[in-house]
């Protein structure tokens, strides 16, 4: 599998675990029925479906992504859901959107603006604000924390402290560019009434197959290639607890419990 395919696979497999938090965040935005919005960095289109559901049959969602492979998949997902009239997709760059000023009632960006290492967050947020009408809202949403190894806080801290463990949270960039500092970008972009919200997801034993598979994928996404950075002792413990083929795989523990958070920052375009 190439990188795009394996990323797509991870998104598919992890969605049963993450979808309730995404739904809660979209609900909290209280999108107006019949409104028209932008999903910037829409990936394989799962959230565009939930956003389209939130704005109802008269509303419309425009999904934009830089990957044509994701968009081809997203088109299929939307056609299967019978929503092709309510969701359209464009290939494009979030930092140079192909839309005029004041086009949308709202903009949503998940795991993209402020999260993707290749995208400068300040200008991307300004670009989202540009295409939203005065009084409309801009929201950025992304994974922000997790506790996945109950009973092993030291091992989990060590895994998170590796370069591959910190990578999703943009190691090496200025503190101001970190996703959790998004309130500053909203202020600098001139957005009003900015707010931060936290959404919690969890899982506990006995795990269904779907949730177990989602957590296996999550371990791989959270700590990719971590082993080379661990001490011998940590590596042995990691293999014992986090390898699906290990007889002591932590997801099969009868008392397994985990939780994670997503954070959403949102603000209104000056009216």
């Amino acid at each position: 599998m190439n990188d795009t395919n394996s990323y797509m696979q991870s998104m598919l497999v992890s969605s049963p675990l993450t979808e309730p938090s995404v739904r809660s965040a979209i609900k909290a935005l209280q999108l107006t029925p019949g409104s028209q919005g932008l999903d910037a960095g829409c990936g394989i289109g799962f959230q565009a479906l939930l956003l389209a559901e939130a704005v109802g049959p008269v509303g419309h969602v425009t999904g934009l992504d830089i990957s044509s492979e994701f968009l081809r998949y997203a088109e299929e997902v939307v056609n299967e859901a019978g929503l092709s009239g309510h969701i359209s997709f464009q290939e494009g760059d979030v930092s140079r959107l192909p839309f005029g000023d004041d086009t949308f009632d709202w903009a949503w960006s998940s795991s993209c603006v402020g999260y993707s290492a290749s995208l400068e967050p300040f200008s991307a947020l300004k670009e989202l604000a540009r295409v939203v009408k005065p009084g409309g809202s801009v929201a950025v949403f992304a994974w922000s924390s997790e506790k996945l190894l109950p009973g092993y806080p030291v091992l989990e801290a060590h895994l998170n402290a590796t370069a591959s463990g910190i990578a999703p949270f943009l190691a090496g960039r200025s503190p101001e560019a970190h996703f959790l500092r998004a309130l500053g970008w909203f202020r600098d972009a001139g957005l009003e009434e900015s707010a931060a919200r936290t959404f919690v997801g969890d899982a506990y034993a006995p795990l269904t197959n779907d949730i177990r598979n989602a957590l296996v994928a999550l371990f791989e996404m959270r700590w990719p290639g971590v082993e080379s950075e661990l001490t011998q002792e940590d590596r042995a413990e990691y293999q014992r607890l986090c390898w699906p083929e290990s007889p002591e795989f932590i997801l099969d523990h009868p008392d397994y419990y985990a939780f994670f958070t997503y954070s959403m920052f949102h603000g209104n375009v000056t009216g």
């Binding site: 830089i66 044509s68 088109e75 464009q90 290939e91 494009g92 760059d93 140079r96 192909p98």
Partner: peptide, 13 residues
């Protein structure tokens, strides 16, 4: 010229 292929317009600069 920005192409439209398989219904998806490509507006990458």
């Amino acid at each position: 010229r920005y192409p439209i292929e398989e219904t998806i317009p490509n507006l990458l600069p």
